[in-house]
Design a protein around this nucleic acid. Sequence first.
DNA 1: TTTTATTTTTAGTTTTGTCTAAATTTAATT
DNA 2: AATTAAATTTAGACAAAACTAAAAATAAAA
Lengths: 215, 215
Amino acid sequence: MTISEENYIKVIYHLSLVSPKGVNTNAIAGMLDTKASSVTDMMKKLSDKDLVSYQKYQGVTLTEKGFHSAKMIVRKHRLWEVFLVDKLGFSWDEVHEIAEELEHIKSEQLINKLDAFLGFPVADPHGDPIPDAKGVIKKIEKQLLSEVEINAAFHCVGVKDSSTDFLKYLDKQKIALGSVVKVIDKEDFDDTLTVEIDGKRLTISNKIANNLYVQ
Amino acid sequence: MTISEENYIKVIYHLSLVSPKGVNTNAIAGMLDTKASSVTDMMKKLSDKDLVSYQKYQGVTLTEKGFHSAKMIVRKHRLWEVFLVDKLGFSWDEVHEIAEELEHIKSEQLINKLDAFLGFPVADPHGDPIPDAKGVIKKIEKQLLSEVEINAAFHCVGVKDSSTDFLKYLDKQKIALGSVVKVIDKEDFDDTLTVEIDGKRLTISNKIANNLYVQ
DNA sequence: TTTTATTTTTAGTTTTGTCTAAATTTAATT
DNA sequence: AATTAAATTTAGACAAAACTAAAAATAAAA
Ligand SMILES: [Mn+2]
Ligand SMILES: [Mn+2]
Ligand SMILES: [Mn+2]
Ligand SMILES: [Mn+2]
């Protein structure tokens, strides 16, 4: 697979978690910042390689083969992110772009040795699960902070939005994976939350609570 | 720079250490396993970008800019090789191919953090020097074992040929960087050497001695 | 159920990096 | 110095991956 083909397969994988019946051409184009016509061309190529099943106008789904390839790319992406944060000292908002390149390095032996070197982590720095060498993903139990009952204690286990802006906001508020959160109060009008994070009171918007996973 | 351009620049760098007056089109084609006509095309492109100076039929040399780029690619290649051997436990004959891909990862911050993580190594697993962040190469004093006086003690510091075959041969003979070598006798007829390596007697051909650096 | 809007595909180009075959230049031999 | 050989460059073609503009199919609205 070329780097371009891998990027398409990975995007289809992510989109198909939300639309399992078939991923739209425009959705793929949007994610890859390319044009719909380019996507159509690539779908034909991936279909010829038996990585996706594709019928004109009907959207696209991954084949078994494509699904497995996708998980291997995601595995590489997330393991490299762990490496960058845990070993090289990058912060969690800096690693995505670099992992976007590293995920395309070919050697399977490399990624398995990296996995061992990192101690077989189950999640990346953003709390997303890391497929094992066979492609098995250990599901992480989690809820959005916005959907959690009041006055129970949770801890942060992941982010839904991993944009730099959101991650920097969390850094500023000293919210990290592992932080203990308790919802003290919820404003009826706009769902603004009053929370206690690691013992400190904080007011956060619904948009924030909607992008933070807790357990 | 594209990956292809980087591969050309690196090859020109290596060849120009041997032919500083100008690197031949065919030599480049041979190293990259491509055709002379492709090389000519690329030389025009690199010349337009001011990475090489090129005049038809006269061979090619790196500009200051090209020279610096080349050293940064070599730096990345060799640092990744150190990582693969020291941290992931690859053997020295397995790393070249993987480093060939890793050397093209873009981030400068990544490579400087990797350098620090590895403890600022001065040489790669094959004894080749690693340019620092500014491109400065600390020259490693070394001689070929074939050119060394009899009965003096040296230690191995590098290999000239780093092909799998040669490295595997050295592994088999338990010769590694750091091993102590003394030439006991040299056969006049074919320059075969009798050596003592880490205390053990061994007979080695001139071809071997010609590819092993000692200090 | 027409009509309109949106989505998707097709057709035709472009750029990058490669190739083959032919032409040209330089180097080596008679 | 003329001829032959080798190295290099040009010309023209191709595949991959993108694009624009136009056509076709599907979905939404009237
Ligand atoms: Mn990528
Ligand atoms: Mn991540
Ligand atoms: Mn390379
Ligand atoms: Mn090396």
